[in-house]
Amino acid sequence: MMPSAKKLQNMRRLPGLVVARLLSIALLSMGLSLMGAGLTTAQSQPPPGSGDAFVLGLPEGTPLSGRLLDERTEEVSRDIRCPVCQGLAVADSFSDTAVAMKAEVKQMLAEGYSDEQVFAYFEASYGEFIRLNPTAEGFNMVVWIAPVIVLLIGFSIVALRLRSASKAARADDADTSEPLREQVEEDDLADYLDRVRKDLKPTKLEPGT
């Protein structure tokens, strides 16, 4: 059975609708994610009482040495922002400041300070800005949660739209009266037969072809 004209029209519109919805969702996700990041940056204030964090107390970890110390230094330095660079971690920069900060990280880890104590030390001087991975607590959670929520909402919207479009198409089929359907089918068939006749129209063949 040939599909009705309206159904065909709906089917042609469907990919455009889906793309439009996906673009809207992407826009929403991006907007909310960036908004969350913007808020996080705007609220990048030191935690209460961190001003005296340069007195870190006793080391809470295990003193490291050798290859393990080098590896841990690299790992921790990857999460500390180089303050004189554009979006680079201390581990990835060769600036004097980054090299000095990396040396401090290494010394602190060698003395047995924990990762969190190392971060707290730099955070006391530079604020939360110095962390390349903001702590997942308080308002910062927006950065992690918002994209997931927005994606879920987006998928729900897409699913609902697809379902309603499918329902509408089925309803169109059911509502179409039989004479009209036959008329449409006859019209379509007539167009098709016209094209076939044109294609089969005898062509004069030149001798030798």
Partner: peptide
């Protein structure tokens, strides 16, 4: 519906522009 979603997107972008 398209307009509604576009409006929602703009409402989300607006605070971002304010922060900027």
């Amino acid at each position: 519906m398209n307009r509604k979603i576009l409006l929602a997107g703009l409402l989300v972008i607006a605070p971002l522009l304010v922060f900027l």
